[in-house]
């Protein structure tokens, strides 16, 4: 009986591994291609393990000026995350604590602004930004537009986190002599820290991959982020797949590492917060 049970477990695990492997194939293929050299790329049948692994990271990095692109991506992601955390944390808290018709209206409007697709919002954003002269600061424009895009998501996530902090803790702090702002920083924020960090990380990663706004608002190559760089690299009829995959691998490896290390927190943050 027990043996059967273990056998079943192994069978289940084996099938699960097979499913994960199948799903992860594109990621694997990206790395393998990045390691292949010119002729092996076009080999038919394709080889699933590079004969002479050659990671042209330095060459691609320099040729594609990835340093500049990634720096711009980082600037945009940091800027967006900063704005979102500063503005959104308090809002998530207030929405979790106060219940009134106005707060419901506020929450509903925030939820509605979360669903607006970037590709549909970019037209008015582009025109209005250019009219008020914001386009002279293209990265700032992208940061503002992207912050408005992801702020609702952050508010929703942190609201769920704050809702899990028992109200009495804050009340106790108030009776003990703290102000509401004092209690917010000394009680609510520390206790909601994990949720806030996960939400901020998700915003950061999402902004690291931002494309529509950067593509449309930033003209100067020197200010464009890595997504736009990758797009221009691929072009319509690219054949330098090793280069593209090397670029992609350099770009996403930190993201994937982040994810693997914090997987448990990210999944639990998402499931407890956003998906109930």
């Amino acid at each position: 009986m027990l043996r059967d049970e273990r056998l079943t477990q192994f069978a289940l695990l084996f099938v699960a591994l097979a499913m994960v492997a199948t799903y992860m194939f594109p990621v694997y293929w990206m790395y393998v291609t990045a390691l292949k050299t010119g002729t092996e790329i076009t080999a038919w049948p394709p080889s699933f393990w590079p004969a002479n692994p050659d990671f042209a990271a330095v060459e691609v990095w320099q040729r594609m000026r990835m340093g500049t692109y990634l720096k711009n991506s980082a600037i945009i992601a940091v800027g967006v995350t900063a704005i979102v955390v500063v503005l959104g944390t308090g809002c998530g808290y207030a929405l979790a604590r106060v219940r009134s018709r106005w707060m419901d209206v506020a929450l509903f409007s925030i939820l509605m602004m979360q669903v607006l697709p970037s590709s549909l919002m970019i037209t008015p954003i582009f025109v209005s930004f250019s009219q008020i002269g914001l386009l002279d600061y293209p990265r700032t424009s992208v940061i503002l537009a992207q912050a408005a895009k992801v702020l609702p998501f952050y508010v929703v996530l942190t609201r769920a986190t704050f809702a899990q902090v028992p109200r009495e803790l804050e009340e106790s702090a108030l009776v003990e002599g703290n102000s509401r702002i004092g209690a917010f920083f000394s009680i609510n924020v520390p206790l909601a820290r994990n949720g806030i960090l996960v939400a901020a990380l998700l915003i950061f990663l999402q902004s690291l991959g931002e494309y529509v706004y950067s593509r449309s608002l930033i003209q100067s190559r020197a200010l464009q982020p890595a997504t736009v760089g990758l797009q221009s690299f691929m072009g319509p009829n690219t054949s330098d797949w090793q280069g593209v995959m090397t670029y992609a691998a350099i770009y996403v490896t930190p993201i994937i590492l982040f994810f693997v290390f914090l997987q448990r927190q990210i999944v639990s943050g998402l499931t407890s917060g956003a998906l109930k």
């Binding site: 028992p166 009495e168 803790l169 106790s172 009776v175 703290n178 102000s179 520390p190 206790l191």
Partner: peptide, 20 residues
């Protein structure tokens, strides 16, 4: 007046101990 201006102490049903 806000709670902090009242100089009271309170014991809550859940105790409300700060977990951190």
């Amino acid at each position: 007046a806000p709670p902090r201006a009242r100089d009271l102490a309170m014991v809550f049903q859940s105790y409300a101990l700060y977990p951190h």
